[in-house]
């Protein structure tokens, strides 16, 4: 082999390696920067306290609380629907049917719709159309649900995270051996009973993974909730479904771009970012662990 080829070869390998290295370094730098700068102010008072003096001091408890309630409501909506869709796709539908292909295509496209479009959709469909309809029907036109609130924000996020739940659930349904289903059928199970008594209990890991991934995604999205329920600052915590709420990501956005004195709030801001990151990473990490366990079981059986 000529030395020119050898040199070119070595260069190519090094270049691709360099690309990988740069990505790793970037991630380390981002996380390091946020961890180092955010660590200082991270304290119990910060997490459990209320914002003071125009949000330049104090804690971020209302934002954490709002985020938790938001993703809880979202989970209540997205998990049943996502699991149902995965069950339908994998256990009920004929795989070669056109409609199944259409549903898969819709899911894949749903995953690619920009977050801000979900925000517009949430505003148009949930806040104005659905909320307006509810107000007309049940509240005699008094403004109750036809306004941005935590319910509509969480439902908007539920649609955004739907593909995540479906994909993770379907993967775990696939991991349940076919022979388990046969055994249940032979015991006189109806198709539904097979799903309920055998398939779902054996794919809880994947469902949990999907749920956690959806939560972590939902907790970090800002664009969809900007117009559907998140608020700059509220002196009270959301008490009912039609209240607005504070949220970590939105709080970060607001503090970064609208604060009169960014330098003064910088340490506080870094700590808020760190809290959001720790939250999403903890969730992602749990999901990865569960998924690894599910995959191991799939390989062994």
């Amino acid at each position: 082999m000529s030395s020119r080829i050898r040199t070119a070869s070595r260069m190519f390998v090094s270049l691709t390696g360099l690309a990988a290295l740069i990505i790793v370094i970037m991630v380390v730098v981002i996380l390091g920067n946020i961890a180092v700068n955010g660590w200082e102010l991270l304290s119990w008072e910060f997490i459990a306290g209320n914002p003071r003096t125009g949000m330049t001091e104090g804690g971020i408890f209302p934002a954490i609380f709002g985020t938790v309630v938001l993703v809880l409501l979202m989970t209540l909506a997205v998990v049943p629907l996502g699991v149902a869709a995965a069950v339908w796709l994998h256990e009920y539908a004929r795989q070669d049917s056109r409609f199944v292909q259409l549903v898969r295509l819709a899911l894949q496209n749903l995953a690619g719709v920009p977050a801000i479009v979900f925000g517009l959709f949430g505003l148009g469909f949930f806040v104005q159309f659905t909320g307006g309809g509810i107000d007309q029907l049940f509240f005699g036109g008094t403004l109750t649900f036809a306004q941005p609130c935590i319910l509509w924000a969480s439902l908007t996020l539920a649609i955004l995270t739907l593909p995540t739940v479906v994909v993770a659930t379907e993967e775990s349904l696939r991991a349940v051996p076919k022979i388990y289903r046969e055994a249940a059928y032979a015991l006189g199970a109806t198709r539904w009973q097979v799903v309920w008594h055998v398939v779902l209990p054996n794919s809880l890991g994947g469902i949990l993974t999907g749920t956690i991934l959806a939560i972590s995604r939902g907790a970090g999205e800002v664009a969809p909730i900007m117009f559907t329920g998140a608020a700059y600052f509220l002196p009270f915590l959301p008490g009912s479904l039609n209240d607005q709420f504070m949220e970590l990501g939105y709080h970060i956005y607001v503090m970064t771009t609208q604060s009169p004195d960014v330098e003064a709030t910088k340490p506080l801001l870094y700590s808020t970012v760190l809290v959001l990151l720790l939250l999403t990473f903890a969730l992602n990490f749990t999901a990865v662990l569960i998924r690894a366990k599910v995959r191991r079981r799939m390989r062994s059986s």
Partner: peptide, 25 residues
């Protein structure tokens, strides 16, 4: 086994955090 999880980690960073980092740093 280092690169793949690191990329997954990057994918898990909320875009508002990336925006914050881009803006501040």
């Amino acid at each position: 086994e280092i690169i793949k999880p690191v990329v997954e980690l990057l994918a898990g960073i909320p875009s508002v955090v990336l925006g914050f980092f881009a803006l501040m740093v």
